[in-house]
Amino acid sequence: MNSVDRREGPPADGYNFAYLDEQTKRMIRRGLLKAVAIPGYQVPFGGREMPMPYGWGTGGMQLTASVLGQDDVLKVIDQGADDTTNAVSIRAFFERVAGVATTTTTTEADVIQTRHRIPEQPLRQGQILIFQVPIPEPLRFIEPSEVETRLMHALEEYGVMHVKLYEDIARHGHIATTYAYPVKVDGRYVTDPSPIPKFDNPKLHMAESLMLFGAGREKRLYAIPPYTRVESLDFEDHPFEVQQWDVPCAICGARDTFLDEVITDDQGGRMFVCSDTDYCQSRAEEVA
């Protein structure tokens, strides 16, 4: 079975390949090379207006547009699902303006744009994962000034981040941060891995694929190259832990995936299913 959709006919008239003009792509490409060279450092870029509002993945789209080639196969996911509004719209957008082939199968994709999840299927070398990032600055909720946070990164002044995690422990008895859990990249920059659940944080460490992050409203991009050390911040007596569930996925029976809670009626009925729809579907097919 061929799970790659190849679009018939040429891309939409009147647009450059992949929507952005070449000048903008070059500017973003230069930024991406610097981002890869300084893992975890946020490179400012001249973000463009995209034909959708901020908060819908304009940063990720600008990166995808700059990276994407006509022979690439694109996959777009939103919270792990290929069939939600955001994912469907962005996939359709690039089908139209770039004429690229698309897929929902993780292993077939060359470029994967994602909102808030990393696929369960480990990515291979050569694949590029592009994250949509709402607020790229992990220190922003502690220090509102960009001038100050930039200086804090320059001086490696990250003690305050541990204070924030400690306050969690003091208040709740454990680190209550469950998503956008701060990481330290290659032992230097404290970085926001975007609002992925902390369940996905271990997948960032020594990953085989290149990971790029784009924030459209904040106009920042950053990167984690393959085979890079990524540690989630923690304490010796409160080590980093990921979420666990008491039940397996109600559809495929997986016990090692990130599960979404789905409310099924108004009588308190609920079920837990994999958030990664492609992984769940392929497992369910195997079982059947």
């Binding site: 450059n16 390949f17 991406l32 090379l33 890869v36 060279a37 080639g69 290149l210 990167a223 190259p225």
Partner: peptide, 19 residues
Amino acid sequence: SPVHDSQRMFRQLLSAMSE
């Protein structure tokens, strides 16, 4: 082909820089 040649060349540079 300025659009596609520079895109392919960039991808080669990106993978060189990341590996």
